[in-house]
Design a binder for these strands. Structure first.
Lengths: 124, 124
DNA sequence: CAGACACTTAAGTAGATGCTTAACGAAGAG
DNA sequence: CTCTTCGTTAAGCATCTACTTAAGTGTCTG
């Protein structure tokens, strides 16, 4: 199985291509066959199949073949994982800013005066 | 200037690498110089500089040189843009599922019976 | 000034990506 | 059974990526 870092690699890499994002948006409206997905796109069906493999490797798309037709649908969990990774970090960032704000807005006499910059800096 | 699609390409591509995600996490704790960022990583400083260029191209990191030292910090807006792209799509997906749920849970006699599958499908 | 320091840039390389064409396999339709 | 349709697979190709080493450029420091 894949660990979290590997899954994030695959999810972000999958989303880092306009064609693949277009495929995702199409699939949000409902399942579709490979041909249906390829039809509006300015490339060969073979190329679309390759993009779908990238999305499947990331777990974003699941597909099933019936007869000669493969039907694809979205699997939302990996998208949620990518969204959360960013969201968690953004939250960290924002609460760090709030903490700094607090320090600047209500400086206490008994606390050390505000440092010139932020939290970090390699100590000598 | 970059349009939205190009910005998303750059943001997701920037996040699709474990080393760059590590750099982002380090910078969330506060600004850091190039050497500080490179120190814990198992690669040359030159490689780290190249990763930082990718992050800067995506707008995720901003940096400023004072004397011979370049200090880097996070710029949260592009992260938010990536997060929103995913979030908006996930919301679409979830409300689509809710709508389907509603149809299945409370089928009305005066409405057409539930279709075998979901919304879409190329009509004959 | 000399030398260390903090990058910067350039060139090279192995491997991945995003496509194409082309040949094939298997399922339905006439 | 033949012909299309739907998809798969392989090969090839130009480009991009993630590094490396090596040779700079400016900036402090003693």
């Amino acid at each position: 199985m894949l660990n979290e870092e590997e899954r994030l690699d695959l999810v972000f890499r999958a989303l880092a291509d306009r064609t693949r994002r277009t495929l995702v948006e199409r699939l949000l409206r409902g399942p579709a066959t490979v041909s249906e997905l390829a039809a509006p796109l300015p490339m060969t069906l073979a190329a679309v199949v390759q993009h779908l493999k990238v999305l499947e490797a990331a777990g974003i798309v699941r597909s099933e073949k019936v007869g000669r037709v493969r039907t694809c649908r979205i699997e939302p969990a990996p998208l949620r994982e990518g969204e959360s990774w960013i969201g968690d970090r953004r939250t960290t960032w924002e609460s760090r800013l709030d903490a700094l704000d607090g320090l600047l807005a209500a400086p206490r006499r008994d606390a050390p005066a505000a440092a010139p910059d932020t939290t970090e800096g390699t100590s000598p």
